[in-house]
Design a protein around this nucleic acid. Structure first.
Length: 617
RNA sequence: GCGCCCGUAGCUCAGGGGAUAGAGCAGCGGAUUUCUAAUCCGCCGGUCGCAGGUUCGAAUCCUGCCGGGCGUACCA
């Protein structure tokens, strides 16, 4: 059960008549300092202020009224009017016995399950996944597992970029630069090469036209002298001539135009481009699936942009019909209060944009699943887009679903710039995972030479991948974070490996003591909480349900990692402090039960984070 | 210019109205005849960017400023 929620409801009942009971109840929190107790109710000061009364007297009134039995005795009033609650050790001990026999570890399925659509990962199929896809994939998967664990109905949707401009680049590359033998040998690699090639042809011209933007503006305004002077200044280093610059820009524009034309043909149903799309897609999806398998990520649906293609025209039509969209500079756009720049739903060349696709997607999801909540796990740079998207969807009456942009920050390198290789390339996701495993392997080899070769390999895989996921999830979602191998693979501190280690230590106790956990759980030991470290561990054990609820409500995986780290920490202290196998008979089963519960929570918690455990490491 | 996000210990980060602001790393000092020392315990370390304001109470909310990141009309 969720003890925090239970205490809150007790305070809801006991709230003074002249106050908002639900606000009063929500002022109950886990305690700030354990020496005061386990939970605290902070609502009395506010009540007293409104009433012009003494807060301690208000607190006394509440304490007289509130009934916390059997979980706690009469709470204490402290400081300016805090009410401190201490869970009763006898109830705690009794409850741990119940938990031992409970497969769900106290987590109760939601009374009113919600349908939650989670849109995450969403890579472009044309190019290999890179470090930038880690966060969306890992956070999205974790949120899905959190909601599932709480008994909600989750639909994981990989909104693949399989229909956009990047596919036009592949088509252009295929038609102009393909290497069929390379394609036969490794299709995805060849397609990626073609994509990069097209980009490389387009990029220089874009860079130059950016660099000389001002020059061209001067020329447009007829200020040729200024234009010439500025050009000379900007070209001082490169010694580029005007002809060269014009040529590069023209070439790059021509290729960009050709790529766009390929995209347009694809969308228009051109048989050749459609056939190529059909031919390439299975390879692209297969390559993605390899990564998802390794990361234990599985989607319920993968409805990419192509899926919505047929709905785009009607989407724009409807927006025009209800007067939301209008024409501007040749494009069809929607101006919103949320943003100065409009949302472009159809470009001047007639093509639709991802904004159109996203609108159609939102509508489709509502009509198909009637979700209560739709989460878009997409990086924070797109927050303007989503603000507009949600505003337009609401204005267009696309259903009363609750769409939320679950934004996250950028992964940075040690130089505080987006994480790149030494050569300045983005880091491929596969090589990132390989390196994590290799580094973990080195640590395993050093620390656990007694394990077999095969065993060490498995540990390295689980610890390496866990390190990357944990590093990501333990961070506050919104902040950028610095990617640091040594930190994430450290066995001390807030890391996945530390939690996995705590789990393995417990399994080691069971092995050494030849403990059959199934029978341990059946014989329902009486739990004794004689020492401070045992009690501290017990209090952490009973807080799993409230932690999951909080993580779900705030959409913050790091709430869960913080909890698990705290639990593992308390376990380590207990482990150091209290012998288990060699404990007195009256303590032995009790401590074994604490170990078992800790291990099960660690395993479940890590599982929710998408991280595996090993019995030995 | 406008909009969003960020600024907390030497470093990396939690905490987002509640008590003396926490953790890990780094530094210093301890703990191993005992279940995995990949561990544990202790010490050191902070004008919570600055200045106002709201509040019984502000790292947390509001305003302004400083510093940084990102976004800002046809890429997604």
């Amino acid at each position: 059960m969720n003890i925090l929620a239970w205490i809150r409801s007790a305070f809801f009942q006991a709230a003074p008549d002249d106050t908002d009971a639900s606000a009063f109840a929500s002022a109950v929190k886990p305690i700030s300092d354990p020496k005061f107790g386990d939970y605290q109710a902070n609502g009395c000061m506010a009540v007293a202020k409104k009433r012009g009364a003494n807060p301690r007297e208000v607190a006394a009134e509440v304490v007289r009224k509130v009934d916390l039995s059997p979980w706690a005795n009469e709470p204490e009033i402290a400081g300016p009017g805090f009410i401190n609650i201490r869970l009763r050790d006898d109830r705690l001990a009794e409850y741990l016995v119940e938990l031992s026999a409970d497969d769900r570890l106290g987590i109760e399925p939601a009374e009113r399950p919600k349908t939650v659509v989670i849109d995450y990962s969403s890579p472009n199929v044309a190019k290999p996944m890179h470090v930038g896809h880690v966060r969306s994939t890992v956070i999205g998967e974790c949120l899905a597992r959190i909601y599932e664990t709480l008994g909600h109905h989750v639909i994981r949707d990989n909104h693949l970029g399989d229909w956009g401009a990047q596919f036009g680049m592949i088509l252009w590359g295929w038609k102009n630069e393909r290497d069929e033998r390379a394609f036969d040998a490794d299709p995805v690699r060849e397609l990626a090469r073609l994509y990069k090639l097209a980009q490389a042809r387009i990029k220089p011209g874009e860079t130059l036209s950016d660099r000389y933007k001002k020059v061209f503006e001067f020329e447009k305004e007829g200020k040729f002298a200024e234009a010439e002077a500025l050009f000379a200044k900007l070209s001082a280093d490169s010694k580029a001539t005007r002809d060269e610059v014009d040529r590069v820009i023209a070439e790059s524009r021509a290729i960009a135009e050709a790529c766009r034309a390929e995209t347009a043909k694809l969308h228009a149903g051109d048989p050749e481009n459609r056939a190529l799309w059909e031919r390439f897609m299975p390879y692209c999806l297969g390559a993605l699936q390899t990564i998802y398998d390794r990361l234990s990520v599985r989607f319920d649906v993968q409805l990419g942009e192509s899926f919505y293609d047929s709905m785009l025209a009607e989407t724009v039509e409807k927006l025009e019909k209800v007067g939301i969209a209008r024409e501007s500079e040749g494009a069809k756009v929607v101006f919103t209060r949320e943003n100065g720049a409009p949302m472009i739903v159809q470009k001047s060349d007639g093509a639709f944009t991802y904004a159109t696709t996203d609108l159609a997607t939102l509508k489709y999801r509502y009509e198909t699943w009637r979700p209560d909540l739709v989460l878009y796990v997409v990086d924070h740079r797109q927050s303007d887009h989503f603000k507009q998207l949600f505003a337009v969807a609401a204005a267009a009456g696309y259903g009363e679903t609750d769409p939320r942009h679950v934004a996250f920050g950028t992964i940075l390198g040690a130089d505080k710039k987006p994480y790149k290789t030494r050569d300045g390339d983005v880091v491929g996701l596969e090589s990132l995972l390989d390196e994590a495993v290799a580094r973990a392997r080195a640590v395993v080899d050093r620390n656990s030479p007694e394990l077999s070769e095969e065993e060490r390999g498995k540990v390295a895989e689980v610890v390496g991948l866990g390190a990357i996921k944990y590093a990501d999830l333990s961070q506050n979602r919104l902040s950028d974070y610095v990617f640091d191998w040594d930190k994430m693979l450290a066995m001390n501190g807030n890391t996945g490996a530390y939690l996995q280690y705590a789990y393995a230590r417990i399994q080691s106790i069971f092995r050494k003591g030849e403990i059959d956990v199934a029978s341990l759980r059946r014989r329902v030991p009486a739990v004794a909480l004689g020492s401070a470290s045992e009690r501290a561990l017990a209090v952490a054990i009973v807080r799993l349900p409230e932690t999951l609820e909080l993580a779900a409500n705030d959409l913050k995986p790091n709430v869960l990692t913080d909890y698990l780290f705290d639990l593992a920490n308390r376990f380590s202290t207990f482990y150091d402090d209290c012998p288990v196998l060699k404990a007195e008979p009256e303590n032995r089963d009790s401590r074994l039960a604490l170990c078992d519960l800790t291990a099960r929570i660690l395993k479940l918690g890590l599982r929710v984070l998408g991280i595996e455990t090993r019995d030995r490491m």
